[in-house]
């Protein structure tokens, strides 16, 4: 059964002239890792709010259609109940700090504390999270005195430590250094192994192509493509939806255009590119 299902969802913000999303339908299975891509302002964060049940209650507007969590209409669940199932990481890391805690360690522990989890269990889980996201050295720092990338890691840790069944993560790597970005994708991979369901909004398509099972592309209010990462990112049409293609795909398209190499499939991951180009450098173009 689907963990999360959207049925023909259409939404318009209260004061807006036009709808922002129309006829959005998809269903996500337990343990799936789905990436949501689209140009800035297309409505990705809005869609995240819809899946979290914040729309139309918290952000007012007019919504039609249905959102089901484990088969139940989320319109009938309380925000508090929903928050136990769905963890959310904000797009803007500068806003996701509680403001009440004095150290990074306590900040990450905050949510668990509110749930009344045993202290020894809290310590174990926070330690594990600090280690996983490589922020152990920040444990005693003040949460408001971090660099941009450090704040973003702490924001992610504070949500992951809650261990929700579904994670909606809105651009979690925007401020991260390249190795930090890799660590986040590796963390998501581990979560997936533990059967967590992950919905990720992300512009870094090279990483999405390497890790995501499935990619949903939104353009001009609608889902314009919903397929495997490999299928989505080997299609040059994606460029017209305001998204980039992975570097290896761009390279392959360029080589193809120059008549240098034939590809049976446009590669979307580094391994695929290596496999397809290996040993062909000397007879390319003939």
């Amino acid at each position: 059964m689907a963990v999360l299902e959207l049925k023909d969802v259409t939404f318009k913000y209260q004061l807006a002239k036009e709808t922002i999303l129309e006829n959005i339908s998809f269903s996500i299975e337990k343990g799936e890792f789905v990436a949501l891509v689209g140009r800035n302002g297309v409505g990705k964060t809005t869609l995240c709010s819809i899946m979290r049940g914040l729309i139309p209650t918290f952000h007012t507007g007019t919504m039609s259609g249905q959102v089901l969590l484990n088969g139940l209409d989320i319109g009938e669940m309380s925000i508090g109940d929903l928050a136990l199932h769905i963890g959310f990481v904000f797009q803007n890391p500068f806003v996701q700090v509680s403001g009440v805690k004095q150290t990074v360690f306590e900040e990450v522990a905050y949510g668990l504390e509110n749930l009344g989890v045993k202290r020894s269990e809290i310590i174990r889980r926070v330690e594990e999270m600090l280690h996983q996201l490589n922020i152990e050295h920040l444990r005693s720092k003040h949460p408001m005195q971090l660099s941009g990338g450090q704040s973003q890691r702490v924001a992610l840790a504070s949500v992951l430590v809650m261990d929700p069944e579904i994670l909606i993560i809105d651009e979690p790597t925007s401020q991260l250094d390249p190795q930090g970005t890799e660590e986040v994708f590796e963390t998501i991979r581990l979560l997936k192994e533990r059967k967590k369901t992950i919905i990720l909004v992300e512009h870094k398509v090279d990483w999405v192509a390497e890790y995501a099972d499935r990619v949903i592309v939104i353009d001009d209010k609608h889902i314009v493509k919903d397929a495997s990462a490999s299928e989505v990112f080997s299609d040059p049409m994606i460029l017209e939806t305001g998204n980039n293609l992975p570097q290896v795909a761009l390279l392959a398209l360029r080589l193809l255009e120059l008549g240098k190499v034939d590809f049976n499939k446009i590669p979307t991951t580094l391994d695929e590119a290596v496999e397809q180009l290996k040993g062909r450098a000397d007879n390319g173009g003939n």
């Binding site: 250094d177 190795q179 570097q247 290896v248």
Partner: peptide, 12 residues
């Protein structure tokens, strides 16, 4: 040392 990575094309 600086937590960087080569661009994908260089890795390839």
């Amino acid at each position: 040392k600086a937590a960087l990575k080569q661009p994908v094309v260089s890795q390839l």
